[in-house]
Design a protein around this nucleic acid. Structure first.
Lengths: 250, 250
DNA sequence: CGTATCATTGACGTCGGTCAATTCGTGTGG
DNA sequence: CCACACGAATTGACCGACGTCAATGATACG
């Protein structure tokens, strides 16, 4: 459990003690109505790094709230290639999809040790039915997911290798993520291998390596020993920003 | 209006006459409760081909139900490149995003003449509040969107050019889309330019052209005069199928 | 310490991009 | 009805980003 770079796996005694509650679906509930999810939930579970939370094709009967740790969602192509769809952090809601009873469309692997809070899949629609606030919250989360997906697609489909990597890594600086000004010199733990970065961005690990060297040599950022250091935020931004408006013809 | 390959623009007199109702958000309502959306909706609107429905950065105050025609959702990169995020057909719900009051994160352009049904943005949360069935339906649509997004990302990030194009085009055969066996020889109208296909797949139009020639020469499919003809479904599938299960180690 | 995984680097090949010219197709105006 | 214009499609020549193959180092773990 010592390798969890996200802090120690957190398994709160009760939902009231859950420190990340606000960032999850449960955050939609008033503190005095937590009994709703408390009764609904099956258990907490700690899952070791490098194991799968669930697999594509599987008929899962649980749904998860990610409490701590890092999880990669991915698909395997016919060629054997792996496409990482998202990297998830605490607060994420995992295993949910349009057709709850159908086999899963993607797999999830724990990158670090992970703590999840387990809900029954069967009864889930009923829970949403009974407590519309939860549905509303989940809806908001899904909408954000769609937007994040667009971002990822735009990155992979529209940018060069070095731009892709810069954009991808920038999203792991929390300050930047929350639209504050990240600071040059900021350091964050990043438990991803170069292969994973490649699988997320549609590039090979060797090329990721060469790109990381370029980014280092250009004084933009450094990734070493699972630690990411920001050197030149402005430079990175110039490389990866969307045009705010849709600048059509003059 | 004659160039609409999707059929003539349909603007039903009332929601009860709406032939595509079942495929939209409104499909969640019983036929005898259509007054709900009927009262809520502002108007219908016909929009000519090659114009924008909305633009990234804009503060939109409407939301749309796409009644007929083809719409491309896209983003413009800093480089000027355009990434097409999705191609939408009738039934799609357009202009919705997590933060309704924030500027839009992507743009939408009408590929053909288009008919939309217009809802007020402001009052929309309240509508969902009052009629949870609509919320549930919308949630299902969003979940499908997420899955479609994963598909697109997997296609762009994980496959070679020819595989990408094959996969992309296959999705326009309705029978295939609905998981029936499309038939060799099937023909469908496809009002996309080669440039659009390229913008969706992260490839240049000239390369799309070369790939289409290959697909033709290999007897897989033909795209000519905005018409797509399927020649060898099995061959195409072999090229683009995901491994059903996540075939991990033996 | 021995082994496994990850990172790093070089040599070389290829897929897809760029530039540019030509053809095709459709719509327009005379 | 024909001439022209414009965007889309098509093709060739050339080049560069990225992939492949393979060898070597660095780290972590039992």
């Amino acid at each position: 459990m010592s390798k969890n770079l996200d802090g120690l796996p957190v398994v709160p005694k009760s939902c009231a003690d859950c420190t990340i509650r606000e960032t999850t679906v449960c955050g939609a509930l008033h503190a005095d109505r937590l009994d709703i999810v408390e009764k609904f939930k099956i258990c907490d579970r700690i899952i070791p790094a490098h194991t799968q939370l669930y697999r594509a094709g599987e008929q899962l009967d649980e749904i998860y709230n990610l409490l701590s740790g890092w999880v990669a969602l991915y698909r395997i192509l016919e060629s054997g290639k792996r496409q990482i769809l998202r990297i998830e952090r605490s607060g994420a809601f995992l295993g949910y999809q349009a057709e709850l009873k159908e086999p899963l469309l993607h797999s999830a692997e724990c990158i670090t040790d992970v703590a999840v809070c387990v809900f029954p899949r069967r009864a889930f629609p009923e829970l949403l039915e009974r407590h519309p606030v939860l549905g509303k919250r989940l809806m908001g989360m899904m909408a954000h997911e769609v937007a994040r997906g667009h971002d990822h697609l735009t990155n992979v489909g529209g940018r060069s290798g070095i731009e892709r990597v810069a954009h991808f890594l920038l999203q792991f600086f929390p300050r930047h993520q929350y639209r504050q000004h990240a600071l040059d010199g900021d350091m964050v733990a990043l438990p991803l291998t170069q292969e994973m970065i490649g699988d997320a961005l549609g590039l090979t690990p060797v090329h990721i390596n060469r790109i990381l060297r370029q980014l280092r040599e250009r004084g933009l950022l450094v990734l070493h020993h699972k630690t990411l250091q920001l050197l030149d935020l402005e430079g990175l931004r110039r490389m990866t920003e969307l045009s705010e408006l849709d600048g059509a013809e003059p």
